[in-house]
Design a protein around this nucleic acid. Sequence first.
DNA 1: GCGGAGCTGGCACCGAATGCCACAGCCGGC
DNA 2: GCCGGCTGTGGCATTCGGTGCCAGCTCCGC
Lengths: 272, 272
Amino acid sequence: MQYRPHMSQPVRAQSSDATETSTPGTRRAAAQRLKMRRELSAAAMELFATKGYEATTVDEIAAAAGVARRTFFRHFRSKEEAIFPDHDDTLVRAEAVLDAAPQHENPLDTVCRGIKEVMRMYAASPAVSVARYRLTREVPTLREAEIASVARYERLFTRYLLGHFDEGAHREGDDDPLLAEVAASAVVTAHNHVLRRWLRAGAQGDVEAQLDHAFEIVRETFGTGIGAGRALTGETPPAAVSREGEVLVTVARTDAPLDEVMRTIERALKKR
Amino acid sequence: MQYRPHMSQPVRAQSSDATETSTPGTRRAAAQRLKMRRELSAAAMELFATKGYEATTVDEIAAAAGVARRTFFRHFRSKEEAIFPDHDDTLVRAEAVLDAAPQHENPLDTVCRGIKEVMRMYAASPAVSVARYRLTREVPTLREAEIASVARYERLFTRYLLGHFDEGAHREGDDDPLLAEVAASAVVTAHNHVLRRWLRAGAQGDVEAQLDHAFEIVRETFGTGIGAGRALTGETPPAAVSREGEVLVTVARTDAPLDEVMRTIERALKKR
DNA sequence: GCGGAGCTGGCACCGAATGCCACAGCCGGC
DNA sequence: GCCGGCTGTGGCATTCGGTGCCAGCTCCGC
């Protein structure tokens, strides 16, 4: 009642949704729309980079793109959104990844694959990403906007994790929502960390590998961690490994698959 | 150069800083200032609750508080800030907690105590907190503003953790920044989770106890977790406990303080 | 008493964001 | 081929958040 998010916006205002009945006309219209978004976004980035974010008006952006000011706001909810034109799409793609995940996969791994979509989105155009990073570092408004975007992924992952915990056998105080949220935030935070480091370094090097390494650490902490282990792996883990100094202790279930046990030990050893 | 955050604002615009040369005049002025902030904030909350956030103009808030519109913006950087008048102060208080922490304390514990300041800030006026929660749930702008506030705590804690890792003995690949950020986000996320649950329930029950329980879980994951254990505890932990099903394994250093070992075991057992 | 510092009120101004209406292109059906 | 809907566009007008500027007030220390 009291809040109506941009009703003037067409229904499919965000994201070029490919999963619907698309007549030839609609499809072409969507393509046109996407192209316009790209052009506006490019013009905005160009202006922001040269004369700063606040000093650039929407009028100038629209003029640079050859359209009217009013048209700009038909494609972007706000001036900030012109910098992050892909987050909406990426969010639905990440959700698609979650939905399409195989049943047996560890939910934490699924989520990691989900946020990899975000990383790929950034990695797809490194130059733009670096320029955008510089902007978000300096302009608080943009920084907050990006943080808000990230929070959306976190919420998505939290819901997914909570919905994919092992359905039985761990009704102990019901800490699952907490664990789900913490785990989701850990994954997202790890992603952000790797991403920012990569962007600071000028988008050099293999991000995906670095991301995988970070995930490995998160998985070591949460997947085989002591407190959260049972709930987060979705089942009682077949083996737990503890390594301190020169002592390594392994406890395994008698019915555990052998390779799983080996993998667990291997992970503990790999970190020297 | 390109961004100047409200230069018209007096230097000590935010937070009633008690740690400076305060002449009697200055102190009284600060008290006046604080009172004005409270009144404006109260008027704003009242109006927001009755007629909604967007529907309420700054003019109305100012009029309700009996001052001019211009005065409002001398006390708050923006309309949103009227809802979160205490975050700035709380942030400096949290930082003070970190700075005053005893040397031997586990940095993760310190950070937990730090964010407890935030929880106390909310718990100090439950009714207002609940009303504010309802607002932030419905108005995206406010939601993002709160997320941004939370991010500030996270950054503070990340810096602290990174600066208080054990200085030697773990230069293995330099994952410390990642671990610090993930740990900080875990603590903050746990806090937020408990806080929101408490607010949803109408601010009933002992929040601090619930928060401690959540911290316990985080500590179990990170403090005695396998991957992050060494770095995050700030030293090689004296004891590691692993418990799965009916099997409990403890590995302890020979020179570990006995009570510390007992506490570690106790924690592992307490969770049934 | 006087000058300065700090807070206030009022004004003007900029710019983001939204609503409304008219117009042009494109589609389909007749 | 013509016409009625649909969609995107441009150009208004309007609201409102936020800032700069100036004048007036009060309280303080000299």
